[in-house]
Simulated scan of single mutants.
Amino acid sequence: MEHSTLKIEGMTCMGCVRSLTSALSALPGVSHVAIDLESGIAKVDHNAALTSLATLSEAIEGAGFELV
Rank of each mutant, 00 (worst) to 15 (best):
V33R: 09
P28C: 07
A42C: 03
L24M: 11
A42T: 00
V33C: 10
A49G: 15
L20D: 02
I41L: 15
S19I: 05
S19L: 14
H32R: 14
G29I: 10
I35E: 02
V33L: 10
L37H: 10
L37D: 06
L20A: 04
T21A: 11
G29E: 07
S19Y: 08
D36A: 14
A49F: 10
S31I: 01
H46L: 01
G40S: 09
V30H: 07
L24Q: 09
S31Q: 10
S19P: 01
T21Q: 13
L37R: 06
L27W: 08
S19F: 08
S39Y: 03
V33E: 06
L27T: 06
E38N: 14
H46V: 01
S19K: 15
A23L: 02
V33D: 07
V30R: 09
A49M: 11
S22Y: 00
H32P: 00
P28D: 13
L50S: 15
N47Q: 12
I41F: 09
L20H: 01
H46G: 00
G40W: 14
A23V: 00
S25F: 00
L37M: 08
I41T: 14
H32L: 12
I41S: 05
S39W: 05
V30L: 04
V33N: 07
V44G: 04
H46Y: 00
E38S: 15
V44C: 07
S19C: 09
K43R: 13
S39V: 03
P28L: 04
S39L: 03
G29S: 08
S22N: 11
S39C: 03
K43F: 02
S25M: 10
A34Q: 13
A42S: 06
A49K: 14
I41M: 14
P28Q: 05
V44L: 06
L20P: 02
H32N: 14
S22F: 01
A49P: 04
V44K: 08
S25A: 13
D45N: 12
A49N: 14
A49Y: 10
D36Q: 13
A48N: 09
G40N: 07
L27K: 05
